[in-house]
Computed example of a mutant assay.
Amino acid sequence: MKSHILLVEDEIKLARLVESELSYEGYQVTVAYDGLAGLNNARQLKPDLLIIDWKLPNLSGLEICRRLRITGDQVPIVLLTAKDEISDRVAGLDAGADDYILKPLRGDDLMSRVRAHLRKQPKLDPDLLEFEDLTLNKRTKHVHRGVRSIDLTAKEFDLLEYLIAHPRQVITRDRILESVWGYEFMGDSNIIEVYIRYLRLKLEAENEKRLIQTVRGVGYVLRE
């Protein structure tokens, strides 16, 4: 299967040139022309490698790196930059980039870096749970829907974590109550419906499609 590379570059001529060279080498290439679109594509398409320009409209290359790394995404990232100061290189690596290539680009240098990073096996983060465009990091407690960060209370997080850990499985209310609230819980069983409603309001705040589905008379399921 072809490796999928996401290129985020706002200089259209350069983007087309790099896309052409990568395609010629047999890679599948997606191109985004601004930072926000790049981050959104990175979250949704799950490419094998990112090539990102440092300076981008809407969201810088450094900020894309930071936002991906803070959610546990370990995709290899190569920064394109005209900055050659040591401090700039350190800033790029600190933000989460794996490598950087100085502009103007040399085709042979770019391809050698691409091949080197694609040979590396990505480390799977056991704390990162994903479903569709929803990501949840158990370690950092960060939740994202696409590029949008979502703030959850502790119990909302626990409930979502349980659902995303059991995708496409119909889970009864009793099972949710025992697993999320505990066997000793003596409160109102309607608490589940209340928290499901809270989660839906936050997950669908920008008219995103519903992921938490109700199975009447049984419970709930996380599915498309």
Rank of each mutant, 00 (worst) to 15 (best):
R16E: 10
E19P: 10
E21G: 13
L22R: 08
L22N: 10
Y24C: 09
Y27V: 04
Q28E: 05
Q28F: 13
Q28R: 15
Q28P: 04
T30P: 06
T30N: 13
V31R: 10
V31E: 00
V31G: 09
A32C: 09
A32W: 03
D34N: 12
G35K: 13
G35W: 06
G35F: 01
L36H: 11
G38I: 04
N40M: 11
A42T: 01
L45D: 05
K46I: 00
D48T: 01
D48M: 01
D48A: 13
L49M: 02
L49S: 06
L50D: 12
I51G: 01
I52C: 14
L56A: 00
P57R: 07
P57Q: 05
L59G: 04
L59D: 00
S60R: 09
G61V: 10
L62C: 03
L62P: 12
E63M: 03
E63P: 00
E63R: 08
I64K: 01
R67D: 09
R67C: 10
L68K: 10
R69W: 09
G72S: 13
L80F: 13
T81M: 02
K83H: 14
K83M: 15
K83Y: 11
K83P: 03
D84T: 14
D84Y: 13
I86P: 04
R89E: 03
A91H: 11
A91K: 15
G92F: 02
L93C: 03
L93Q: 07
L93V: 12
D94T: 13
G96D: 00
G96E: 02
A97S: 06
D98L: 11
D98T: 06
D99W: 15
D99P: 05
Y100F: 14
I101A: 03
P104W: 10
P104V: 11
L105S: 03
D108L: 11
D109Y: 12
L110Y: 06
